[in-house]
Nucleic acid binder design. Structure first.
Lengths: 231, 231
DNA sequence: ATTGTGCAAGAGCGGTGCTCTCCTTTGTGT
DNA sequence: ACACAAAGGAGAGCACCGCTCTTGCACAAT
């Protein structure tokens, strides 16, 4: 079907890829707010109106870039994790957190796109959910593994959080105790608080040796999800 | 001298305030990206070019709004803290964290302005630093008080972080042990990770009972800075 | 060979930040 | 009291933006 249409369909795929590529280049250079369809078209030597044959709106193009960014981060983390396979869970936790930070520092605008303030008026479609979840599921995998080896040491949940915690666990990881799932979600958000603060300049004149500070904070985070302190 | 100049100076102050007010209204309604000088001018019934007599650029206007936002958050937190004076530090910690979340939920666009992705090309001037620090210093006050009553229980710092930790302590709170300062800074960033995730939709279909979840996470955070668990 | 369709281009709409020029108002020094 | 300089407002205009609509061309299927 797609191959049957021949050259036409193939050209379409190629142009679509070229647009995304040019857009990603602009994104890295200037940031999402300055991503301009006209500039993309200019770079590709085509009329701005022609882009609308491929992406019905600027927001659709943004969505494509968002999914790519989540996937890029997810892949970086999964690769780092795979390279640390056969190390203890605490070590792998650190590796994954640090790979997230490294990716963010290397792709600041793409990071801002997915974990920064949402573009006003832009509503991320559910298409982005699977890509966005990769990192969280990776973290859950690590905790699952750690839990299999020896139960994670976590304080019991307060009674009023129990229902919500059980709901979350049922959704995300039915095989794990609710307190582990809750701790993981909190740590996940906190991790990106650390990364975001560093990237967005909130540590200006406060934290200088950010690498070491991050390492330390990730260690705290590991303890807060019940993993033993590393190193 | 400013009063000596009389009506002129007073008018300038009033118009400046009116511009900021209109801009803040637009900010709340549409977000920073859609803040338009022309729209502000329209609302005030003046020519867009006239605004440049008061703010040399859109970015300068943004800076003013940023400082206001930091101050608004700082004041909300300080008020909440003052109302909880004479309660134990752990309780006050919770109160301050919750006031930050409440403020953020009530002022989402202003929150995005100060803790979300920075506007590309926009460099926050050092003028914003004092306002931005209010909350951190409030948290330090609480920890200082707790520390005076009985030393906070924190694991020792790893050797390689010591120099940086001591530098941070010397800058921020020379009277507190370095590990307390480091823990506070990390918790500060993590707190806004939690708030940002909730506000920016990252908890969509993950956390439903966000109030209770946040309370729990703040409790974890309190423990991570050496405060006793509350409730 | 003709017909139908996918695609690019151009013009144009209403919007943006910002600048420059012109003109009125206002405050001050003589 | 009056002249003059400074401040502030208005308007036109520049280069840009996202997006739409119409036109014309080149290719594909029949």
């Amino acid at each position: 079907m797609s191959t049957a249409h021949g050259a036409r369909a193939r050209a379409r795929i190629e142009v679509t890829a070229a647009i995304k590529e040019a857009a990603r280049r602009q994104l890295a250079a200037e940031g999402a707010a300055k991503l301009s369809l006209r500039a993309v078209a200019r770079e590709l030597g085509m009329a701005s109106s022609a882009l609308y044959r491929y992406f019905p709106s600027r927001d659709e193009l943004l969505t494509a870039l968002i999914i790519d960014a989540y996937d890029s981060l997810g892949e970086a983390a999964e690769t780092a994790h795979a390279e640390a396979a056969h190390t203890p869970p605490a070590r792998r936790w650190t590796v994954v957190c640090e790979s997230a930070r490294t990716w963010a520092l290397g792709h600041p605008h793409e990071y801002a796109l997915i974990y920064g303030s949402p573009v006003p008026g832009y509503k991320a479609p559910d298409t982005t959910v699977p890509a966005a979840s990769r990192l969280a599921f990776l973290a859950l995998d690590i905790l699952r593994d750690a839990h299999r080896r020896s139960a994670l040491a976590l304080p019991p949940l307060s009674a009023d959080l129990r229902p919500e915690a059980e709901r979350m666990a049922a959704d995300l990881a039915p095989d794990l105790p609710p307190e582990v799932v809750v701790a993981m979600v909190a740590a996940w958000a906190e991790l990106f608080g650390l990364v975001g603060f560093e990237l967005f300049g909130q540590f200006h004149r406060v934290v200088e040796d950010r690498e070491r500070f991050f390492r330390h904070a990730v260690d705290r985070l590991a303890r807060s999800v019940g993993l033993p302190a590393s190193s």
